[in-house]
């Protein structure tokens, strides 16, 4: 039996030197690409004069963050989660509770939220993977987890139960609230770039190679001496932590959360849609997917704005058509000729 090919270009990835060296070596091109994209996006507000377009891009970057978070576990790790809202909600509630009940500044919420998201990811991963859950079973357990947290948030007093929580209107970068649309744009961009950088690291590191090996053939990976459970738990933690940061962003942007808004299935769906459309298990897939979906949604609204339900239906139709004709995602379009589809 031959060893499952790691996803990186170098066949020796599995026994490559420490991650940092590898990161510098094999991935210079990808780092350069990410840097270029980051710079272009950072310059965008200088060109984009319309606030609506800036908001559109801000929300697409926020969606990129959620998608990248999901993609680390779902794309690189092959473990589909239907309940990523669980991490998102934990992040949002951590931020809100620290600000409202403890009077702490917003940035502590971002740190603590991400930490708790990571810890929750580790816990969820540990429970699920120890019991050997895979495929649909893992997906369903995450789905149920999100529901359990939604019901808990709805029932305990310190989350405000069904009433939800609201943070005070302040303005200033220290409060992670911004007077201008540009402020939120750069906040979203910073978070999205962190998520993309982490994705890029995962894609090219030894950790990522091990994760891909586990995804492609878990038994073979184990035979190679990879601790599959530990790798998957780590991926879930990483994914959960980034997703939680998304929850904090939501809180800072919209100031009000309730159990359905942050633990509801809509969040989980938003997280998985982008990467699948853009290209599962690719670094830029979530970015491409998020912008493409946002664009499709705008196109549908433009086309049938007078009948909102029909424009939503059109959005659904485009989604189906895209899956049918671009089965490997938009991001892999150019690869179709090279590899067999």
């Amino acid at each position: 039996m031959h060893t499952p090919a790691p996803i990186g270009r170098t066949p020796a990835a599995a026994d490559a030197p420490p991650a940092v060296v590898h990161l510098l070596g094999g991935t210079r091109r990808s780092i350069r690409l990410l840097g270029l994209i980051g710079m272009a996006l950072a310059c965008a507000p200088l060109v984009v004069r319309s606030e609506f377009h800036l908001t559109f891009m801000t929300l697409a970057l926020y969606s990129t963050l959620l998608g990248s978070a999901w993609n680390i576990l779902g794309g690189f790790g092959g473990q589909y989660s239907f309940g990523h809202a669980v991490f998102f909600g934990l992040g949002a509630y951590t931020g809100a509770i620290l600000q409202v009940h403890a009077g702490l500044p917003a940035w502590t919420g971002l740190l603590a939220g991400s930490a708790i998201g990571g810890a929750a990811g580790a816990a969820l991963g540990a429970i699920s993977f120890r019991y050997g859950l895979r495929g649909s079973y893992f997906a369903l357990v995450t789905l149920a987890m999100a529901e359990v947290f939604r019901i808990i948030a709805n029932s305990v007093p310190f989350t405000g139960a069904g009433v939800g929580m609201m943070i005070e209107l302040r303005s200033g970068p220290a409060d992670l609230q911004f007077e201008s649309r540009q402020g939120y744009y750069y906040f979203a961009l910073a978070l999205a770039l962190v998520a993309l950088a982490v994705s890029s690291w995962v894609r090219h590191s030894r950790f990522g190679a091990a994760l891909a090996a586990v995804r492609d053939n878990e038994d073979a990976a184990r035979a190679l001496g990879i601790d599959a459970t530990r790798i998957k738990v780590a991926a879930t933690a990483l994914s959960g932590s980034l997703m939680a940061a998304g929850g904090v962003f939501y809180l800072q942007y919209f100031h009000y959360i309730d159990p359905m808004l942050v633990f509801g299935p809509a969040v989980s769906v938003e997280a998985l849609l982008g990467p699948i459309v853009g290209g599962l298990g690719t670094v830029l897939g979530p970015l491409i997917g998020a912008f493409a979906l946002a664009l499709v949604s705008q196109v549908a609204t433009q086309a049938l704005g007078q009948a909102p339900a029909l424009s939503m239906a059109l959005y659904g139709v485009i989604l189906i058509v895209m899956v049918t004709f671009l089965p490997r995602g938009l991001g892999r379009l150019r690869l179709r000729r090279g590899r067999h589809a």
Binding site: S50, F52, T55, F254, P308
Partner: peptide, 21 residues
């Protein structure tokens, strides 16, 4: 000028910017 908030706060907020313009 009718805009659909799609029952989601973030969509509603984005539509405000559109209506503004």
């Amino acid at each position: 000028l009718v805009a659909d908030a799609q029952s989601q706060p973030q969509v509603g907020a984005a539509e405000v910017d559109k209506l503004n313009e």
